[in-house]
Nucleic acid binder design. Structure first.
Lengths: 195, 195
DNA sequence: CACTGCCTTCCTACTAGTAGGTAGACAAAC
DNA sequence: GTTTGTCTACCTACTAGTAGGAAGGCAGTG
């Protein structure tokens, strides 16, 4: 969090928080302009079109997520811890309201009317996240930490849906604690596992 | 599906499908105007302001849902069947693309920038759905059909999150089958239940 | 019966404001 | 001396919303 962030990074930061709040159609260049004290035209210099801005934003987001999940895999000892760190990340984001929703989950809900260049990137993010969860679950099974009653890919999809659904419920009911109330038991069940 | 639907019903029908596709900010009076061949000003006659239109729409949706769930409770013999009918309803909606997403789930994602009169109604819908699921699970437990490892209210929240998350994943990855792939096992686990 | 007045629905025509985007000038940096 | 970043000023299309009127249905009254 350094004050020497480039203008284009600042634009992306603001745009991201605006998308999290209201989605693709929920923000305008004027909103960004107001937020960082720059003229609308200057934003167009960095990002000629809105679709392009959001496409770059999703790329950056996916890259950051991939890096974070990768470093989790290297640092956190066990797959069980990796999963725990992942949901703890979102719990703190939601509880301190710093980023109360996943950008790509937000955009995914608007999928049907997103420009192609954005839609394809959102899809890629979901695929990447599912792949990471799958590999963590797989590793956990091999180490005897998890016992799944379905294939890791299926279980990963179920877990991912649970996480995004929990975010939505927490937002809908205005209760940040609901996220962990929903996701927590899901993780516990994977650990305890089987019968 | 009769051709004698009133104009205001037609407006709500179109608005609902537009919201499902793109959310609150994803449609305009002009879009509705084009779709049903009526002037913009005529829509304002029926619904003076956009927030009011959507508030009425959510009321109608919640009322229809409540009626549907109530009749399910009366018709479907066992709580297990009631749950099955509920998710089968959404499966068919998603598979034939007639209504590939829940209006209130869509609006919930935009909660932070929704007019108050809309936001409160969306919250009410979530509460109503959670209450229905809770009572069905509760009844299932009493009849020995389900065995839950947590309180019915918690299990209901988990199930609701799973349903909405599954909708989101199906939409994000463009794979309608993903809905049932995620929700199906969740239901099975409730039936089989326990250890 | 005809007339009157009201109500509903829809219309044309308009408003102020906002959307994304462009043209071109200027200053500083490489 | 070109490139980079910002600016002012502008454009067209669209936003929600308003004003006022035309057409028809439907009382109630003479």
């Amino acid at each position: 969090m350094k004050s020497t962030a480039s203008t284009s990074d600042k634009i992306l930061d603001i745009a991201q928080s605006l998308i999290v709040a209201g989605g693709y159609n929920g923000f305008s260049y004027a909103d960004i302009s107001d937020a960082i004290g720059i003229r609308k035209a200057s934003i167009h210099h960095h990002f000629p079109a809105k679709a392009e801005l959001v496409a770059v934003l999703v790329d950056r987001y996916t890259r950051q997520a991939a890096a974070g999940l990768q470093s989790l895999r290297e640092q956190a000892a066990s797959p069980a811890d990796q999963l725990q760190f992942y949901i703890d990340y979102w719990r703190s984001c939601i509880e301190n309201a710093s980023q109360p929703f996943c950008v790509c989950a937000m955009l995914a809900s608007e999928m049907q009317m997103l420009p192609d260049e954005v839609a394809s990137r959102v899809r890629a993010h979901f695929q990447g996240l599912a792949a990471w969860l799958t590999s963590v679950l797989q590793a956990g099974v091999e180490q005897g930490l998890f016992r799944l009653d379905k294939r890791p890919e299926e279980q990963a999809q179920m877990l991912m849906a649970s996480v995004h659904g929990a975010m939505l419920s927490a937002r809908a009911l205005g209760d940040p604690g609901l996220f962990i109330a929903v996701v927590g038991p899901e993780i516990v069940r994977l650990r305890a596992a089987g019968c």
